[in-house]
């Protein structure tokens, strides 16, 4: 039977203990060996710091709120619908959109690590990756929602999606009251990151 260990499981302990220095040491070593290009690192950071983030997902949600036929296609095949809008790529190759309704509220987690739909929401916030969220939300989602100041009506069931494969989930929050006259851009402004994970609700105008 194959083994799942080798002689030096603690190779990382050879690096400096301070986290910032650890990263610097690895970056310097790999750069000097010709294995990474520091300019490529800057480009990766620029992408996720400024280009790819939750405003992408908000556009998708606003479109779903505005256009029932689009929403139907999104709920049926989010991967191709989002790709048509230009939202595709790493950590979002297989997308599923789930809709919050008066009967069901959806929440997304990755209990085993930190899976998240990067092309739609960017890099996950700290709390999404925290032990407390990963450990608790599958067992007591309503108590976790209370940490976010959210209380659901008694009649609304909760479904927690533990994203354990490469399928990444987008929550389509309920459209807020009083938004009948708003166009897609104005609607997108009401869509928060947390509402697309299911730990918040969309803002009201």
């Amino acid at each position: 039977m194959p083994h799942d260990h080798h002689d030096h499981d603690d190779d990382h302990a050879l690096l400096p203990p301070d986290p910032a220095l650890r990263v610097k040491a690895l970056e310097t070593l790999l750069t000097r060996k010709g294995l990474i290009d520091p300019a490529a690192l800057d480009e990766i950071i620029e992408t996720y710091a400024h280009k790819v983030g939750p405003r992408n997902g908000a556009q998708v949600v606003a479109k779903a709120w505005s256009d029932p036929a689009f929403k139907e296609r999104l709920l049926d095949d989010a991967t191709s619908v989002c790709a048509d809008l230009g939202f595709y790529g790493r950590q979002g190759e297989h997308l599923v959109a789930v809709e919050n309704t008066a009967e069901q509220h959806n929440i997304v987690v990755c209990t085993l690590c930190s899976c998240y739909p990067w092309p739609l929401l960017g890099i996950p916030p700290g709390w999404y990756k925290s032990d407390a969220y990963r450990a608790r939300v599958v067992r007591e989602p309503r108590a976790v929602l209370a940490d976010f100041g959210v209380q659901l009506p008694d009649g609304q069931a909760v479904r927690v999606w533990d994203s354990t494969a490469e399928i990444r989930y987008l929550v389509v929050p309920q459209r807020p009251e009083g938004t009948d006259g708003l166009d897609e851009a104005a609607l997108a402004d009401l869509v928060t990151r947390d509402s697309m994970i299911g730990c918040g609700l969309a803002n009201t105008p």
């Binding site: 890099i123 976790v144 990151r193 947390d194």
Partner: peptide
Amino acid sequence: MGGRYGDGRVKPDPEDGPVF
């Protein structure tokens, strides 16, 4: 760790906080 007890409350980050 799904379902584990003892981790305390979740501390939300502001929506407009830095990505990194």
